[in-house]
């Protein structure tokens, strides 16, 4: 019968906490950049000018159709050689995941904006608003409420995707867990604890997201996934 011994794991609790903090840091930064970039990409994609919408479309398709890990490796190993710049694991991670989540957010933005019926646009234009005013004052506010559930879903996905940074030696929670496992020769306890920490954190966010969704739905707007 195997003797479980969590003591060595808890002895390294500090490293685990550091790792968790780093995980959250990457997620938060990538999320923020991704949202802004995603909106920009969506607007470019919706533009009637082909020289704007095509490149945007290309970026979106490429980043949605290739595996995140391949993207990460490309940004970490390949880009520095092309651009002649230094790439730390953190920068590579943030760059990759910002663009990657931007590509998904762009589609959510686009679907949300397009889901607002023509009538709203026409109503706004008919009272003399410009297209930009209509977008900012009438369409986007309504679209945003509808898009929140999809955003929350994507954000939780991002939290899980960022574990990939462990493969490029960024000291996130998984990387620390691996290091501790090798140091203490206790992979079973270490990885179990790491898995549980991930579960608790992500599950908590997941529940929060669901509660938020329910509150939005009660407010009259039905949420469409």
């Amino acid at each position: 019968m195997y003797k479980w011994d969590f003591a060595p794991v808890f002895a390294n609790a500090g490293l685990l906490a550091e790792g968790l903090a780093n995980t959250l840091k990457v997620t938060a930064v990538a999320l923020g950049c991704g949202l802004v970039l995603g909106l920009a990409l969506a607007l470019l994609r919706l533009s009637p000018r082909l020289f704007l919408s095509w490149p945007a479309g290309f970026v979106i398709e490429v980043f949605r159709t290739t595996p995140p890990l391949v993207q990460l490796f490309w940004f970490f190993f390949a880009l520095p050689l092309i651009a002649g710049i230094e790439m730390t694991p953190f920068v590579a991670a943030v760059t990759t995941f910002s663009i990657q989540s931007a590509a998904f957010f762009a589609e959510v933005f686009r679907a949300g904006i397009q889901s607002i019926e023509r009538g709203q646009w026409e109503g706004a234009l008919a009272i003399g608003m410009s297209r930009r005013q209509a977008l900012n004052h009438i369409v986007l506010p309504q679209a945003v409420t509808r898009m929140i559930p999809a955003f929350l879903e994507r954000s939780i996905e991002l939290m899980k995707t960022t574990t990939l940074v462990a493969t490029i030696a960024y000291a996130d929670l998984l990387y620390q867990a691996n290091a501790i496992a090798q140091k203490t020769y206790r992979p079973l306890e270490t990885f179990t604890v790491a898995a549980l920490i991930y579960f608790v954190v992500i599950f908590a966010f997941s529940l929060l997201a669901r509660r938020l969704e329910r509150r939005l739905a009660v407010g009259g707007e039905s949420t469409v996934h």
């Binding site: 195997y2 939780i156 899980k160 995707t161 574990t163 990939l164 462990a166 493969t167 998984l174 867990a177 691996n178 496992a181 992979p187 079973l188 270490t190 990885f191 179990t192 790491a194 898995a195 991930y198 579960f199 992500i202 599950f203 997941s206």
Partner: peptide, 21 residues
Amino acid sequence: EFFRNTPVLVQMLWFYFALPI
């Protein structure tokens, strides 16, 4: 709930390093 809220990479490493023990 458990397998949707844990990263796949973590599970993979668990199966590779922890399960054999």
